[in-house]
């Protein structure tokens, strides 16, 4: 059949679209219908099933901070996913406690998603509550003052603008917090 498509343009168009749509529909439309955890917000009250907690929608201030995160392209260098790799759970961990892996139900309110593809800086999926406001202010002004050897750009126009800075920190402090994963609950505000 396909041998005829190099003479008939209409036959060609139909075949090219059919071939494309088989995989296209099965990998984009079908998966969210099959796996409900993609759209159901995380909620767990049973400690025997892992960290407890509840995913809540972002507040207006957090959304404003998120928009700054998107605008400045933070996501080109920072991923937001603790993968199912031992090293990831250790690196996202804190004070000797391993972080839980990221699951789809923690990201239901994220748009645009910020999973990222490149890790020039560390992963931020569990950074919420690790550093306080003053640390972030110094770090945004010049990252090398706190982390010698860092290649992160300075962001003085954020550090010096209280509204923008507070919104961005408010967003950062939400990251990974749906799961209450630290035994001491010692999160910075």
């Amino acid at each position: 059949m396909l041998q005829k498509t190099d003479k008939s343009a209409i036959g060609f168009v139909i075949a090219a679209l059919v071939f494309f749509f088989i995989g296209g529909l099965l990998t984009t439309v079908v998966p969210p219908l099959v796996d409900k955890s993609w759209s159901k917000p995380f909620e767990n009250t049973d400690p025997s099933k892992g960290p407890t907690g509840k995913l809540r929608p972002y507040t207006d201030v957090e959304l404003k901070g998120r928009a700054i995160y998107v605008r400045e392209g933070c996501w080109y260098c920072h991923t937001q996913q603790t993968r199912t790799l031992l090293a990831d759970t250790k690196r996202s961990g804190w004070k000797g406690v391993d972080s839980p892996v990221s699951t789809p139900d923690e990201f239901v309110y994220d748009s645009p998603h910020m999973f990222g593809t490149k890790r020039t800086g560390p992963d931020l999926s569990r950074v919420g509550g690790k550093y306080d406001r003053q640390w972030h202010r110094t770090h945004f002004r010049n990252p090398r003052d706190l982390v010698p050897g860092s290649v992160m750009p300075p962001f003085p126009w954020i550090a010096n603008n209280d509204d923008d800075f507070n919104a961005l920190v408010a967003y950062i402090q939400t990251l990974g917090r749906a799961k209450d994963w630290r035994p001491d609950h010692d999160y910075e505000k």
């Binding site: 990998t27 984009t28 998966p31 969210p32 993609w38 759209s39 789809p104 990201f107 239901v108 309110y109 994220d110 748009s111 645009p112 998603h113 999973f115």
Partner: peptide, 10 residues
């Protein structure tokens, strides 16, 4: 879409 579903389309 949002979250993982959106990432899959992306």
């Amino acid at each position: 879409t949002t979250g993982t579903n959106q990432a899959n389309l992306n």
